[in-house]
Amino acid sequence: MNRHRHQQAFFVSSAVVASRLRTVMQIAKEISLAAKNAKAIAERAGEKANSFKPITDFIDEMGRETIQLVEEINDQALSVSRSAVEEFRCSDASARFVRATELLGDNERTKVLSEKAEAIRKDAQRQQKEVHQQAMQLLDLLQQIGSCMRASGVISTRSRVEAVTAEEYQESLQVVAETIEKASERIKGIIRDCENTIHHSM
């Protein structure tokens, strides 16, 4: 019974992760937009923001990478959810075949039902392994976003430093740095929640 509750939690939790990633996607798009802004400001600033220009490429790349990772994670989360549903159905079927075998009792055909129950149990076990494997891949992808966001911390610090030399453009570039910092913090928070959700279901 506990096993069933655990499995049910899993196919729900992976679907929950998929839904939370919509927000991450939105924030990643905000990062990309911030990168475009930063590029435009750096262009206008000319030589005054020379050292800032390469950073804008990093920010842009980080935004695109995050969007791509979110898409991958979304597919993976839905795939885990589907496999977990199948595992639940398999385990449920296995329990019902075992019950049928018990109800049949001592009968010449008990062996036939037992064999079927055993085959389904093995199916359920195989399915369970697959779910676990897929969940580990999901966690790995979530960690990749986490690493990406840690790098963004470095980028935003660097942005602040470089913005100082941009004279009248300093304020605008500071705003870009802040936007990126806040966006990465929000993503890190959501990713942590997602990781916890998956861990609790495993």
């Binding site: 019902r96 075949f97 049928a100 018990e102 055909r109 039902l113 079927k116």
Partner: peptide, 19 residues
Amino acid sequence: GIEIFSSMLACVTRYADPS
């Protein structure tokens, strides 16, 4: 329905092999 499947399968198997 699903909820009576186990009872039904046990009953049916008394009369015939599932195959």
